[in-house]
Each structure stands twice: as structure tokens, then as C-alpha cells.
Simulated scan of single mutants.
Amino acid sequence: MAAFGTVFMPQMTMATFENSDWSKPELVSSDAIQLHPGAHVLHYASTCFEGLKAFRHEDGSINLFRMNRNIERMQQSSRLLSLPAFDAGLLQKMITDVVKHFSDEVPKPPGSMYIRPTHIGTEAAIGKAASPTSSSMLYVLLSPVGDYFSGGDKTLRLLLEEDGSRCAAHMGMVKSGGNYASALQPILQARESVNADQVLFCPNGDVQETGAANFLLIDGNEIITKALDSSFLHGVTRDSILTIARDMGMTVSERQLSVDELLERASKPDCEAALSGTAAVLAPVGTLIHNGKEFSVGSGKSGATTLKLRKALNDIQWGKAEDKHSWLTKI
């Protein structure tokens, strides 16, 4: 099986913004785009993207999961990056059109079709470091993916980083490539120095998120996670998991969590921790690394509550459980 996100459908949908207007979306080849070397995105990082999935149900129908929420977040990211605004209906049509076109290629569970809408600034103007792009390109890539946990449900090792941040605080809620770039060196250094899988950024002791996922602490019947603000990404999977947890009668505490409290709670036998994101849904965390010491989270193994929550969300996505919150869009 090819690495996650390295196989693409041969075509994508694309629309462009020029002369203050959006073009009609087209189905075009996905093997290349044409950009001027002076394009705004290449110099001033005017780019944002989304990640969502389409799922094949037993009746053969294809269902998109929380498409509207992803579109809303992409509109927000575009606005915060001063990229040209677009109507939700435009991106919705682009997503549904390309998924319909390749509906026969949507894998059966536990696979899915990963969907990557992308918005980039295209104006050829290297003098616009402090000005927005006047033109842009919006496109939707498709990538069929398999089971994220096919290699085994191993627990992750996280290095707690109190001195650095994933990105600039005012950019945290923007899903932009620059944020991932700024987190890359700390992650690579953590892998080399302490064999960590990810860095959990905790600036000044405030537990936030990793380079590519939200962080959840599960202490018995309570989930603790940072309250939403502009400093970190408002994950769609995070929101879905918290909603399901509330449906199950769990207590959800969205509040500040300190490194000290995290380590204290993690030492309890029934404590669990997990990372939430589109690709993995919930990935269990087994070890926290802080100031040269390793701390097991609970038993250090995949926790029962983590697995239960992940299965509950997967069952909704795959059509095996009731969609109480109208998260699925059948196409």
C-alpha cells in the first residue's frame, strides 16, 4: 500500500479568481498547475487547505463527512489570509462534482477517499509582501487512502515543548501550509533526540496541540482539552469526538490544561490521551517526554475509551450507526 496521501485521482476540479470574479469550476488534469514564478503564494505563503473524507456505505452510496464544516473553516482561513472570498456553494459544487466523477474509486471501509481543497494566491507580484493577492486558484484533489492503522494500533510518543509554539498565536486557527512548515524542525529534532513521534506544543506550560493534530486527555469519564481560541486549529474531528463523548454521557471540559496537571493526571492507571485528526480520527498516546524523563499515560497502551470513541465516529462515517447530527451528505 502506498504511503498516505501519495496516490491521486487523475483529475481535479478547479476555479480561478481574476478581475474580481470567479470562473466556472472545471474538471482538469491533476498532474500539474501553471503558476508564474512570482506568484504571491510562492513568496508570501498565501495558501490554505482542508482535509475531509468521502465514505462508501454498504448500500453502495457515497457520503461526505461534515463537508459544510470544512467549507466554513476554509472560508475563515481564506479571510484571515486575505485571499479572495468565495461562496460556500462554489466549493460544495467542486467537492461533490469531483467525488461523483470518481465515485467508483471510493474505497470500501476501512478505506476512504481523502479530499484536499486548496486555495492559493496567484498574482505575479513580488512587491506585495504587505498586500493581498488580487487573483487566486481554488482546486480540489482526491486521494484514495487505506486503513490508517494497518501497521498496528501503536501508541505515540510525544515530546512536551514549553519554550516554542507551533506557529504564531494569531495564525493558529488558520489551516495554512506555513503553520506546518514552522512546526517541522521541532518535530524532526524531537524524533532524532528522544525518538518522539510528535511534539506537543505547550508554550509557557499551556497544553495546546501537536504539529498536525489536536490533543485530548481522557481521565475516566472526563475529556479535557484546550478551549477554542485563535492560537490553535479548531479541528472538525475534535468537535465530532467531543460531541459523541457528550452523547455517551461523558463530561467534556474545554479549558486551560497545564503541563503539571497533565503529568499528574497521566500517572493514573485509567488515564488515556489521544490525538484527533481527519487521517487517524483518534490516535492513542502512550508516552509523554518532559525534561529528559518519560512518563507513561495510564498503562501506556491503547485505552478502551479512546478505541470506543474512535469506533463510534467510524461507525457513523461508514453508515453503521445513526447519523444523529446530520454530519453526512449523500451524493
Rank of each mutant, 00 (worst) to 15 (best):
F149A: 11
G121E: 12
G178P: 01
A312I: 12
A32C: 12
A125G: 08
E26Q: 15
V99P: 04
N63P: 01
K24S: 13
M113D: 06
H170I: 15
N179G: 04
P186S: 08
N63K: 09
A124N: 14
V174A: 04
N214L: 07
S78P: 07
E72T: 14
Q256S: 15
G303N: 09
S231Y: 02
W327R: 09
L217Y: 04
F232K: 00
E264T: 13
M74K: 08
T251E: 14
K311H: 02
N204C: 02
P107H: 04
L200S: 00
L263M: 08
N179A: 05
Y139W: 08
S165N: 12
D197Q: 09
H234M: 04
E123V: 12
F65R: 02
S253N: 15
K100A: 07
G111T: 05
L288F: 14
G178D: 06
T96W: 01
G146C: 11
L35A: 05
L217D: 05
L83A: 05
S258A: 04
T225W: 14
G205L: 06
S46P: 00
S78T: 15
V145C: 10
H43P: 14
T287E: 11
D104C: 02
I223S: 12
R66V: 00
L138C: 08
L257R: 08
D239L: 02
L81E: 07
W318K: 04
A32Q: 14
A125N: 15
V41D: 02
L27N: 05
Q317D: 00
F201T: 02
G164N: 14
A2R: 11
K293W: 00
P269S: 05
L81T: 11
F201W: 01
L309N: 09
I95R: 00
A2H: 14
V106L: 01
K175Y: 00
K175W: 01
M14Y: 05
N63Q: 15
N179V: 05
Q76A: 12
F232N: 03
T47C: 12
L27S: 06
H36M: 07
A169Q: 12
A312D: 04
K324R: 13
M1C: 10
G60L: 02
A15F: 00
L216K: 04
S231M: 02
I331W: 01
R69D: 10
T306H: 01
I126W: 03
A227V: 10
P269M: 06
R66D: 05
A190N: 03
H170E: 15
L275D: 06
E264S: 12
T329N: 08
S77P: 02
M67G: 02
E50Q: 10
V236H: 06
M173D: 07
Q317R: 15
T243S: 08
E294S: 15
E261W: 01
L262T: 10
M248V: 00
S326R: 12
L282T: 13
S150R: 14
S82F: 07
H40W: 01
E18T: 15
Q256D: 14
K93D: 08
A169V: 14
N68F: 06
W22D: 12
L228C: 01
P203A: 06
H290A: 09
T122P: 03
A213K: 09
L64P: 10
I244A: 03
M113E: 06
A245D: 08
W22M: 13
